[in-house]
Structure formats: structure tokens, C-alpha cells
Amino acid sequence: MRVLVTGAAGFIGFHLALALAKEGYFVLGLDSINDYYDANLKLARLKELGIDDSKAQLWGQRVKSKSYENLEFIRMDLCDEDGIRSLFSEFKPKIVVNLAAQAGVRYSLEHPQSYIKSNIEGFCNILEGCRHHGVENLVYASSSSVYGLNKNLPFSEAKSTEHPISLYAASKKANEMMAHSYSHLFNLPATGLRFFTVYGPWGRPDMALFKFAKAAFENTSIDVYNHGDMQRDFTYIDDIIAGIMLCIKNPAKPSSEFDPTNPRSDISSAPYRIYNIGRSKPAKLLEYIAAIERELGKEIKKNMLPMQAGDVAATHADTSALELLGYKPKISIDEGVAKFIAWYKSYFKIRA
């Protein structure tokens, strides 16, 4: 089974490409390797996949993995309409997992056009590729940020997501609506996954755990927003990958429960589904920081700041729908933090 994974040099995409290759799928990873954060980390992830880092930087050329004969990589931008069209025609994927996007809530406050280009225009090119080339299952990244002003915890997929508070969140909500239209019009099975604060080895430098660990090792301070009065449904990467794999193996189907006179946002008469994918056990931010401090054996200096624009005080995923497919997160915060710190020390060659 041929799988196209976009965002394959990214945090989640790298882990998914690796898991798929190990399970025997023929994987083509795609990424633009942009400079939103250190491109060397992205190239290092590709190297873990057996992709030569010098060849990976060449645009539009499929590079074979030296470690997995069923894995290739191509550097391409989702907004390259002609390139994406040709790629679908040549590779002929049966499954597409779209994880490529302009990420980050705070970054969207200063760079709105990046989100329209990558997350809207780029996703449209993916949908068109799926439509015209017989794709049997599209799985794509949404975000817990779509819940916006909704404070009815835990977040249920069936409830309102009509009030996003950042352009990033709005672009992810738009992805869900775009996918539904293609499911309805062209019978494209599409599953959207609302990710909840993913962390773990090979994570993004702009995410909390990476920033906190870096500050601890460099003896600098961290910014703690809303004076620490925040909670997040922190979810370890291995649990996330297990959930994505379930959706790859269980394409969306029309739901007999869909009522057009009282429509839910997570199901449809089309082959369309939305799932929360989190740990469903939120932790207070200060407790999460304390877990990092325990693992490192030192206190991290903290700058207590007010809430930042575009942020929310709490997230909590209701994962009962995904659990019906067999989803069951296993990694505790203490275990997950320990695994990340071990990776961080290894990657940055820290002996402490």
C-alpha cells in the first residue's frame, strides 16, 4: 500500500513515516524543509530515516532511503500546484496523510499570510490530488486550537468550533470544512485529527518541553503565561502515532447517526470523520514543569506573565470516539518527559 506523508521532516511526520516503513507500507515522505525552525533538526530527522541530507535538500527529486527500501523522500512545497499534481500522477498513493502545515498559534499573529498559503492553498492542492487520483483514504492534521472560546471541558468533537481565536486555528477549521466538501462531492474518505499538545523525542523547538529543557540546561529562564494557571492535555508522540495508524487502517465512512436537521460537526452522510487525539488526562502546566525539574534534578527559573493573545487556559480531549477504534494512550507524563530528556541529551551531546 502506497502512502504519501506530507510534513515528513516534521516532528509527527517523521515518526509516522518511520512507523509506516517498519510496518511494510511503501512510503513517500514530502516536506519543504522551510526555516520556521532550525532546518538542521529536520535534516537530522530525515537522516534517521536513511535519507542523505545533501540529496534531501534538492527540490523535486525523489531520494531513496538507505535504511528502508520501502521509503523515499522528496522536497516539495504543498503550494507547488504543478509539482503536487505530477507527484500524485507518478506515485499514485492510495493513502495520504497530510501533516504539512504552517504551525504555531503565536507565530500566526505576526505572519498571517503564511497560514493562508500553506494551510489553505496547500491543503487544496492535496485535496485535488486525492480527488483526481483515486486516493482511498485521506487523514489530515487538524488541531485542538479549533475549540477556541469553547470552555465546555472535556472538548467533544460534536460540539461547537465556530469561535477560533487565532488565524492558525481558523485555518485548521477551514481544513475540516474543505475536507468535508470533498468527501460529500467526490466520495473521498477523509479523517481529521485534532491533536492535543504533542511532545516527545525529535520534537519542535518552539514547543514548551523543548524550550523548558533548553532553558534548564543553559540556566536561563522560561516564560510561563497566565501566571502558570493553565492546563494542557499533553500527549506523547508514540500514542499519537498509534492513533494515526488506527485511522489509516479505518477509513472514514458515512454515519447512520448523522441527522441533517440537527447536524453534528464530527460525522456526516459523507465518508467524513473528526477525532480528538490526546491523552484525555490534562495536567497543570506547573505540574508538567515540575516533572521536567524532577527528571533534571534542578529548578527552572520562571517568568510569570499574563495570558498571551490567541492562547487558551485549558485543553482536555474527550477521546471516547477514537477509543472505539482501539485507541488507548499508554505513556505517562513522567515517562514521556524522561524519554524526551534522554533524547535531548543525546542529540545535543550533553553529558550532565
Rank of each mutant, 00 (worst) to 15 (best):
257 E>I: 02
295 E>T: 14
39 A>K: 12
74 I>H: 02
158 A>P: 00
119 N>R: 09
286 L>W: 00
259 D>A: 05
315 T>K: 04
131 R>E: 13
288 Y>I: 12
141 A>E: 07
86 S>M: 09
5 V>D: 06
46 L>R: 05
284 K>F: 12
123 F>G: 03
165 I>N: 15
301 K>R: 13
267 I>C: 04
310 G>V: 13
205 P>Y: 13
72 E>I: 05
105 V>F: 10
27 V>G: 08
316 H>T: 00
7 G>F: 11
86 S>Q: 13
199 Y>F: 15
273 R>S: 14
70 N>K: 12
138 L>H: 09
352 A>R: 12
69 E>I: 11
344 Y>P: 10
167 L>C: 08
337 V>R: 04
191 T>W: 03
310 G>T: 13
309 A>N: 09
241 I>Y: 12
91 F>H: 04
232 R>T: 11
64 K>N: 12
222 I>V: 15
182 Y>E: 12
60 G>N: 15
153 L>R: 09
84 I>D: 02
338 A>S: 15
219 N>T: 13
142 S>W: 04
308 Q>R: 14
86 S>L: 13
205 P>S: 13
269 S>C: 05
351 R>Q: 10
78 L>R: 07
253 K>H: 02
330 K>Q: 15
135 V>I: 10
12 I>H: 06
256 S>P: 01
208 A>R: 01
348 F>R: 03
247 C>I: 09
33 I>F: 04
223 D>W: 01
282 P>D: 00
196 F>E: 05
309 A>Q: 14
112 P>K: 12
29 G>N: 08
